[in-house]
Protein backbone atom coordinates (compact mmCIF):
# COMPACT_ATOMS: atom_id res chain seq x y z
CA UNK A 1 0.00 0.00 0.00
CA UNK A 2 1.41 3.40 -0.88
CA UNK A 3 2.17 5.66 2.06
CA UNK A 4 0.39 8.81 3.18
CA UNK A 5 2.72 10.71 0.88
CA UNK A 6 3.83 9.04 -2.29
CA UNK A 7 5.65 10.54 -5.26
CA UNK A 8 6.98 8.98 -8.41
CA UNK A 9 9.31 10.51 -10.93
CA UNK A 10 8.57 14.16 -10.19
CA UNK A 11 10.22 16.44 -12.73
CA UNK A 12 10.05 20.22 -12.72
CA UNK A 13 12.11 22.63 -14.75
CA UNK A 14 12.22 26.40 -14.54
CA UNK A 15 13.61 27.65 -17.83
CA UNK A 16 16.87 25.78 -18.17
CA UNK A 17 17.16 24.95 -14.47
CA UNK A 18 16.09 21.42 -13.58
CA UNK A 19 14.75 21.79 -10.05
CA UNK A 20 13.38 18.25 -9.81
CA UNK A 21 14.91 15.49 -11.87
CA UNK A 22 12.82 12.46 -11.00
CA UNK A 23 12.02 12.56 -7.29
CA UNK A 24 10.56 9.38 -5.76
CA UNK A 25 9.32 9.41 -2.19
CA UNK A 26 7.19 7.28 0.05
CA UNK A 27 6.22 8.24 3.57
CA UNK A 28 4.26 5.58 5.48
CA UNK A 29 1.30 6.83 7.47
CA UNK A 30 2.16 8.14 10.92
CA UNK A 31 5.87 8.56 10.24
CA UNK A 32 8.21 11.49 9.69
CA UNK A 33 10.38 11.82 6.63
CA UNK A 34 13.29 14.22 6.88
CA UNK A 35 14.27 15.73 3.56
CA UNK A 36 17.89 16.85 3.59
CA UNK A 37 19.91 18.46 0.89
CA UNK A 38 22.12 21.42 0.08
CA UNK A 39 20.71 24.81 -0.97
CA UNK A 40 18.99 24.58 -4.31
CA UNK A 41 18.66 20.79 -4.14
CA UNK A 42 14.92 20.89 -4.78
CA UNK A 43 13.45 20.48 -1.30
CA UNK A 44 11.10 23.44 -1.45
CA UNK A 45 10.09 22.59 -5.00
CA UNK A 46 9.19 19.07 -3.87
CA UNK A 47 7.08 20.46 -1.04
CA UNK A 48 5.33 22.88 -3.40
CA UNK A 49 4.42 20.11 -5.80
CA UNK A 50 3.09 17.89 -3.03
CA UNK A 51 1.02 20.72 -1.55
CA UNK A 52 -0.64 21.56 -4.91
CA UNK A 53 1.13 24.91 -5.26
CA UNK A 54 3.09 23.84 -8.30
CA UNK A 55 2.30 21.48 -11.17
CA UNK A 56 5.17 19.17 -12.04
CA UNK A 57 6.19 18.78 -15.69
CA UNK A 58 5.87 15.03 -15.27
CA UNK A 59 5.52 12.41 -12.58
CA UNK A 60 2.70 11.74 -10.16
CA UNK A 61 2.02 12.07 -6.48
CA UNK A 62 -0.64 11.17 -3.96
CA UNK A 63 -1.19 12.68 -0.54
CA UNK A 64 -3.51 10.93 1.92
CA UNK A 65 -4.42 8.62 -0.94
CA UNK A 66 -5.57 11.50 -3.16
CA UNK A 67 -3.97 12.40 -6.47
CA UNK A 68 -2.34 15.79 -6.17
CA UNK A 69 -2.92 16.70 -9.82
CA UNK A 70 -6.43 15.35 -10.20
CA UNK A 71 -7.95 16.24 -6.84
CA UNK A 72 -6.02 19.26 -5.59
CA UNK A 73 -8.98 20.57 -3.64
CA UNK A 74 -9.46 17.36 -1.68
CA UNK A 75 -5.72 17.20 -1.05
CA UNK A 76 -5.83 20.74 0.38
CA UNK A 77 -8.45 19.60 2.86
CA UNK A 78 -6.08 16.95 4.19
CA UNK A 79 -2.85 18.88 4.52
CA UNK A 80 -1.27 21.59 6.59
CA UNK A 81 1.62 23.57 5.17
CA UNK A 82 4.26 25.70 6.76
CA UNK A 83 6.42 26.91 3.91
CA UNK A 84 10.02 28.06 3.96
CA UNK A 85 8.92 31.70 4.17
CA UNK A 86 6.24 32.66 6.64
CA UNK A 87 2.88 33.09 4.90
CA UNK A 88 1.08 35.49 7.21
CA UNK A 89 -0.75 38.75 6.65
CA UNK A 90 1.46 41.52 7.95
CA UNK A 91 -1.38 43.89 8.75
CA UNK A 92 -3.52 41.37 10.61
CA UNK A 93 -2.82 40.48 14.20
CA UNK A 94 -1.65 36.98 15.06
CA UNK A 95 -5.12 36.15 16.28
CA UNK A 96 -6.82 37.51 13.17
CA UNK A 97 -4.45 35.55 10.96
CA UNK A 98 -5.28 32.27 12.65
CA UNK A 99 -9.01 32.98 12.72
CA UNK A 100 -8.96 33.70 9.03
CA UNK A 101 -7.19 30.44 8.27
CA UNK A 102 -9.65 28.52 10.45
CA UNK A 103 -12.61 30.05 8.67
CA UNK A 104 -11.11 29.28 5.29
CA UNK A 105 -10.92 25.65 6.44
CA UNK A 106 -14.69 26.10 6.80
CA UNK A 107 -14.65 26.25 10.59
CA UNK A 108 -17.40 28.30 12.20
CA UNK A 109 -16.32 31.70 13.45
CA UNK A 110 -16.61 30.71 17.14
CA UNK A 111 -14.62 27.51 16.70
CA UNK A 112 -11.97 29.33 14.67
CA UNK A 113 -11.63 31.92 17.40
CA UNK A 114 -11.22 29.31 20.13
CA UNK A 115 -8.68 27.38 18.11
CA UNK A 116 -6.70 30.55 17.43
CA UNK A 117 -6.52 31.22 21.17
CA UNK A 118 -5.28 27.71 21.91
CA UNK A 119 -2.58 27.83 19.26
CA UNK A 120 -1.34 31.28 20.28
CA UNK A 121 -0.97 29.97 23.81
CA UNK A 122 0.78 26.85 22.61
CA UNK A 123 3.27 28.72 20.43
CA UNK A 124 4.11 31.31 23.10
CA UNK A 125 2.46 34.11 21.16
CA UNK A 126 -0.31 34.97 23.60
CA UNK A 127 1.35 38.24 24.62
CA UNK A 128 1.67 39.40 21.03
CA UNK A 129 -1.64 37.94 19.87
CA UNK A 130 -3.32 41.30 19.28
CA UNK A 131 -0.47 43.09 17.58
CA UNK A 132 -0.17 43.21 13.79
CA UNK A 133 2.18 40.49 12.54
CA UNK A 134 4.23 43.27 10.94
CA UNK A 135 5.60 44.01 14.41
CA UNK A 136 6.67 40.40 15.05
CA UNK A 137 10.26 39.25 15.07
CA UNK A 138 11.36 36.68 12.48
CA UNK A 139 11.03 33.79 14.89
CA UNK A 140 7.57 34.95 16.02
CA UNK A 141 6.35 35.10 12.43
CA UNK A 142 7.72 31.63 11.87
CA UNK A 143 5.78 30.36 14.87
CA UNK A 144 2.61 32.08 13.74
CA UNK A 145 3.00 30.41 10.37
CA UNK A 146 3.46 27.02 12.02
CA UNK A 147 0.37 27.61 14.13
CA UNK A 148 -1.55 28.42 10.93
CA UNK A 149 -0.49 25.07 9.49
CA UNK A 150 -1.93 23.32 12.55
CA UNK A 151 -5.29 25.04 12.71
CA UNK A 152 -7.29 21.94 11.76
CA UNK A 153 -4.69 19.30 12.72
CA UNK A 154 -4.76 17.73 9.27
CA UNK A 155 -3.59 14.12 8.82
CA UNK A 156 -0.64 15.08 6.61
CA UNK A 157 1.70 17.95 7.37
CA UNK A 158 4.47 19.60 5.39
CA UNK A 159 7.05 21.77 7.09
CA UNK A 160 9.76 23.43 5.06
CA UNK A 161 12.66 24.29 7.37
CA UNK A 162 10.34 24.83 10.34
CA UNK A 163 13.02 25.58 12.90
CA UNK A 164 15.14 27.96 10.84
CA UNK A 165 15.37 31.17 12.82
CA UNK A 166 13.98 29.76 16.06
CA UNK A 167 15.86 30.16 19.31
CA UNK A 168 16.82 26.98 21.20
CA UNK A 169 13.84 27.14 23.55
CA UNK A 170 11.35 27.56 20.74
CA UNK A 171 13.08 24.93 18.66
CA UNK A 172 12.72 22.49 21.53
CA UNK A 173 9.08 23.49 21.90
CA UNK A 174 8.46 22.84 18.22
CA UNK A 175 10.13 19.45 18.47
CA UNK A 176 7.72 18.63 21.27
CA UNK A 177 4.82 19.75 19.11
CA UNK A 178 6.02 17.59 16.25
CA UNK A 179 6.44 14.55 18.49
CA UNK A 180 2.97 15.07 19.82
CA UNK A 181 1.53 15.34 16.33
CA UNK A 182 3.23 12.16 15.24
CA UNK A 183 2.15 10.22 18.31
CA UNK A 184 -1.36 11.36 17.40
CA UNK A 185 -1.00 9.72 13.99
CA UNK A 186 0.01 12.65 11.79
CA UNK A 187 2.28 11.98 8.84
CA UNK A 188 4.96 14.63 8.41
CA UNK A 189 7.36 15.62 5.69
CA UNK A 190 10.00 17.91 7.11
CA UNK A 191 12.87 19.61 5.36
CA UNK A 192 15.74 20.87 7.41
CA UNK A 193 19.30 22.07 7.34
CA UNK A 194 19.84 20.91 10.91
CA UNK A 195 20.93 17.33 10.65
CA UNK A 196 20.63 16.90 14.36
CA UNK A 197 16.97 17.70 13.92
CA UNK A 198 16.44 15.05 11.28
CA UNK A 199 18.32 12.61 13.49
CA UNK A 200 16.07 13.47 16.38
CA UNK A 201 12.67 13.60 14.70
CA UNK A 202 12.66 11.65 11.47
CA UNK A 203 11.99 7.95 11.13
CA UNK A 204 13.39 8.04 7.64
CA UNK A 205 15.70 10.39 5.86
CA UNK A 206 15.97 11.14 2.18
CA UNK A 207 18.95 13.10 0.94
CA UNK A 208 18.26 15.11 -2.22
CA UNK A 209 20.76 16.76 -4.45
CA UNK A 210 20.36 18.21 -7.93
CA UNK A 211 16.67 17.30 -7.89
CA UNK A 212 17.17 13.62 -7.16
CA UNK A 213 17.01 11.46 -4.06
CA UNK A 214 20.59 10.25 -3.75
CA UNK A 215 20.25 8.28 -0.51
CA UNK A 216 17.52 7.16 1.82
CA UNK A 217 17.23 5.16 4.98
CA UNK A 218 17.13 5.57 8.73
CA UNK A 219 19.70 7.79 10.28
CA UNK A 220 21.62 4.71 11.54
CA UNK A 221 21.62 3.14 8.10
CA UNK A 222 22.97 6.30 6.54
CA UNK A 223 25.66 6.63 9.18
CA UNK A 224 26.71 3.02 8.71
CA UNK A 225 27.16 3.78 5.02
CA UNK A 226 29.50 6.62 5.80
CA UNK A 227 31.83 4.64 8.03
CA UNK A 228 32.39 3.44 11.58
CA UNK A 229 33.82 4.91 14.73
CA UNK A 230 36.82 7.15 15.17
CA UNK A 231 39.05 8.07 18.05
CA UNK A 232 39.67 11.78 18.43
CA UNK A 233 42.52 13.06 20.57
CA UNK A 234 43.44 16.64 21.40
CA UNK A 235 47.01 16.85 22.69
CA UNK A 236 48.16 19.53 25.10
CA UNK A 237 51.17 20.76 23.15
CA UNK A 238 51.98 21.12 19.51
CA UNK A 239 55.19 19.17 19.98
CA UNK A 240 53.20 16.14 21.08
CA UNK A 241 51.42 15.82 17.75
CA UNK A 242 54.14 13.74 16.10
CA UNK A 243 54.55 11.09 18.84
CA UNK A 244 50.78 10.89 19.31
CA UNK A 245 50.34 10.31 15.61
CA UNK A 246 52.77 7.39 15.72
CA UNK A 247 50.79 5.74 18.46
CA UNK A 248 47.36 6.34 16.94
CA UNK A 249 48.51 4.90 13.61
CA UNK A 250 48.84 1.52 15.36
CA UNK A 251 45.11 1.49 16.00
CA UNK A 252 44.05 2.52 12.52
CA UNK A 253 43.05 0.20 9.70
CA UNK A 254 46.76 -0.06 8.86
CA UNK A 255 46.37 0.63 5.18
CA UNK A 256 48.26 3.87 4.96
CA UNK A 257 50.36 3.87 8.11
CA UNK A 258 50.60 7.41 9.46
CA UNK A 259 48.25 8.48 6.67
CA UNK A 260 45.37 6.85 8.52
CA UNK A 261 45.59 9.57 11.12
CA UNK A 262 44.27 12.94 10.12
CA UNK A 263 45.72 15.93 11.91
CA UNK A 264 44.32 19.38 12.45
CA UNK A 265 47.35 21.43 13.45
CA UNK A 266 45.73 24.57 14.81
CA UNK A 267 43.40 22.67 17.17
CA UNK A 268 46.02 19.98 17.89
CA UNK A 269 43.38 17.37 17.07
CA UNK A 270 44.18 13.91 15.70
CA UNK A 271 41.54 11.54 14.34
CA UNK A 272 41.84 7.88 13.40
CA UNK A 273 39.18 5.42 12.24
CA UNK A 274 39.00 2.42 14.58
CA UNK A 275 37.09 -0.74 15.31
CA UNK A 276 36.88 -2.05 18.84
CA UNK A 277 34.80 0.40 20.84
CA UNK A 278 35.34 1.78 24.30
CA UNK A 279 37.85 -0.87 25.46
CA UNK A 280 40.25 0.42 22.86
CA UNK A 281 40.04 3.90 24.29
CA UNK A 282 41.65 2.79 27.55
CA UNK A 283 44.53 1.21 25.63
CA UNK A 284 45.12 4.36 23.63
CA UNK A 285 45.24 6.44 26.80
CA UNK A 286 47.71 4.04 28.39
CA UNK A 287 49.98 4.06 25.33
CA UNK A 288 49.97 7.84 25.08
CA UNK A 289 50.71 8.11 28.76
CA UNK A 290 53.62 5.70 28.40
CA UNK A 291 55.42 8.04 25.97
CA UNK A 292 54.55 11.10 28.06
CA UNK A 293 51.99 12.71 25.73
CA UNK A 294 49.69 14.96 27.71
CA UNK A 295 46.13 15.06 26.41
CA UNK A 296 43.40 17.70 26.75
CA UNK A 297 40.57 15.61 25.39
CA UNK A 298 39.94 12.16 24.04
CA UNK A 299 36.79 10.48 22.78
CA UNK A 300 35.18 7.88 20.65
CA UNK A 301 33.08 9.54 17.96
CA UNK A 302 30.39 8.01 15.81
CA UNK A 303 29.67 9.66 12.48
CA UNK A 304 27.08 12.39 12.66
CA UNK A 305 24.50 13.10 10.01
CA UNK A 306 26.69 16.04 9.10
CA UNK A 307 29.40 13.59 8.10
CA UNK A 308 26.83 11.65 6.10
CA UNK A 309 25.57 14.77 4.43
CA UNK A 310 28.96 16.07 3.51
CA UNK A 311 30.24 12.77 2.25
CA UNK A 312 27.11 12.11 0.17
CA UNK A 313 26.56 15.52 -1.32
CA UNK A 314 30.28 16.20 -1.58
CA UNK A 315 30.72 13.14 -3.79
CA UNK A 316 27.75 14.08 -5.84
CA UNK A 317 29.13 17.54 -6.43
CA UNK A 318 32.47 16.09 -7.52
CA UNK A 319 30.79 13.67 -9.89
CA UNK A 320 28.76 16.42 -11.44
CA UNK A 321 31.93 18.39 -11.96
CA UNK A 322 33.68 15.43 -13.58
CA UNK A 323 30.82 15.03 -16.00
CA UNK A 324 30.93 18.65 -16.93
CA UNK A 325 34.61 18.24 -17.71
CA UNK A 326 33.73 15.27 -19.88
CA UNK A 327 35.53 12.80 -17.61
CA UNK A 328 32.66 10.36 -17.51
CA UNK A 329 30.48 10.73 -20.59
CA UNK A 330 28.67 7.42 -19.94
CA UNK A 331 26.93 8.69 -16.83
CA UNK A 332 25.22 11.68 -18.52
CA UNK A 333 21.80 12.97 -17.61
CA UNK A 334 22.35 14.46 -14.19
CA UNK A 335 23.46 17.90 -13.17
CA UNK A 336 21.58 21.15 -12.77
CA UNK A 337 21.59 22.44 -16.31
CA UNK A 338 20.04 20.90 -19.33
CA UNK A 339 22.37 20.37 -22.24
CA UNK A 340 21.77 22.97 -24.89
CA UNK A 341 19.95 21.46 -27.86
CA UNK A 342 22.54 20.18 -30.32
Amino acid sequence: MPGAIHAEGLVKTFGDVTALDGVDLDVPEGTVLGLLGPNGAGKTTTVRVLTTLLRPDSGSATVAGLDVLEHPDEVRRSIGLSGQFAAVDEYLTGRENLQMVGQLYQMRARAAKERAGELLERFHLADAADRPARTYSGGMRRRLDLAAALVVSPPVMFMDEPTTGLDPRNRQALWDVIKELVSGGTTLLLTTQYLEEADHLAHDIAVVDHGKVIARGTSDQLKARTGGERVEVVVHERDAIAPARGILARYGPGERGLGDVSVEDHTRKLTVPVTGGAKLLAEVIRDLDAVGVEIDDIGLRRPTLDDVFISLTGHAAERAQDEENGADPSAGGRGQRKEPAA
Binding site: Q106, M107, R122, V152, S153, E180, G184, T186
Partner: peptide, 23 residues
Protein backbone atom coordinates in the same frame (compact mmCIF):
# COMPACT_ATOMS: atom_id res chain seq x y z
CA UNK B 1 -1.93 22.13 27.63
CA UNK B 2 -3.77 22.00 24.35
CA UNK B 3 -3.93 18.80 22.49
CA UNK B 4 -2.94 19.45 18.94
CA UNK B 5 -4.52 16.50 17.28
CA UNK B 6 -7.84 16.23 19.04
CA UNK B 7 -11.10 17.02 17.34
CA UNK B 8 -11.71 16.42 13.69
CA UNK B 9 -8.82 14.93 11.77
CA UNK B 10 -10.16 16.69 8.76
CA UNK B 11 -11.89 19.99 8.36
CA UNK B 12 -15.67 19.83 8.54
CA UNK B 13 -17.46 18.77 5.39
CA UNK B 14 -17.39 21.35 2.65
CA UNK B 15 -20.45 23.47 2.17
CA UNK B 16 -21.99 23.60 -1.28
CA UNK B 17 -20.32 25.50 -4.10
CA UNK B 18 -22.00 28.87 -4.00
CA UNK B 19 -22.49 29.06 -0.23
CA UNK B 20 -18.86 28.18 0.31
CA UNK B 21 -17.69 30.57 -2.33
CA UNK B 22 -19.67 33.34 -0.69
CA UNK B 23 -18.53 32.46 2.84
Amino acid sequence: MTTLTDGARRPPAARGGIARSFA
